[in-house]
Amino acid sequence: MPGTSINLGLAHASDRLLVWAVVAYALAMLGYAAEFAFDRRARSQVSRRAGVVAVGLTVLGWALHVGSVTTRGLSVHRVPWGNMYEFSSMVSLVAVTVFLVLLTRQQVRFLGLFVMAPVVLYLGLAGTVLYANAGPLVPALNSYWIKIHVVAAITASGAFMVSGVVTVLYLLKSRWERRALSLGPGAAAAVEVGTPPTESVPSVRRGGLMAWLPDSGRLDRLAYGVVTFAFPIWTFAIIAGAIWAEQAWSRAWGWDPKETWSLITWLAYAAYLHARATAGWRGHRAAVLSLIGFGCLMVDYYVVNTVITGLHSYAGIS
């Protein structure tokens, strides 16, 4: 019978593993920072080594993280995403996974610092503020549609998180480029240095972090690429949720706050995709829409669960 007993040993192991995962991620973050810092001081050998070590630490952290959610699931004999703490842990895990998968396909090591920082912060918050003891699920959450629905929602959210990070970088970089261009040819040269034609790690002598980042066009396309991965999954998550709601509550859609905010998030990202195809909206106006979409996602998870309560407060029947 699911949820009849809780294996406390495994539950502790899960917590311990998460702490070690956060430590590994934090060290990886330092590694990525060192990669940038040494590159700036023209020590490209050291820089490259720091980058490789950072990726190694990221993979290690990822493995510990996978161990943490697995033991959590085993300890309660169910899928490990029944409350906000477990959910946040899963979303960060997906974000790290998306980053690692991107690494195998493109030169995106520059993202390491910017993915690790929010992940460490997020896991820190999840482990302290949102932490909930291991426990079983109420009957309304016991369905295979919820598994499908939640897996899809978590996957999309983790990817949206990565695209959000890249979008912020895009906005910063494009503002920096515009300012540099308006400052004259000398500054424009720095921009050129920051935008190497090849995809190799940019090596920078002048300019700071901004110059080190790839050009804004590439960041924009990278963010878009991740959204085009996440958006259909989010769409599917909403549909799976509606099918589940139809079985559990006899209506597919009831304008419950959680449902409504998922739709608002979806509409915001749909607006972003449209904006990219609309004259006058491409570029940073579209990027702002994408960030608004991510903001709606955060509202959906945290504000709706804690401040606005609906059926999704997991009350079950009775």
Partner: peptide, 16 residues
């Protein structure tokens, strides 16, 4: 496209 974009955003806003 611009109107579609506007109405999509408006619908999201109106649901809040």
């Amino acid at each position: 496209m611009r109107t579609a974009l506007l109405l999509l955003s408006l619908l999201a806003l109106a649901a809040i």
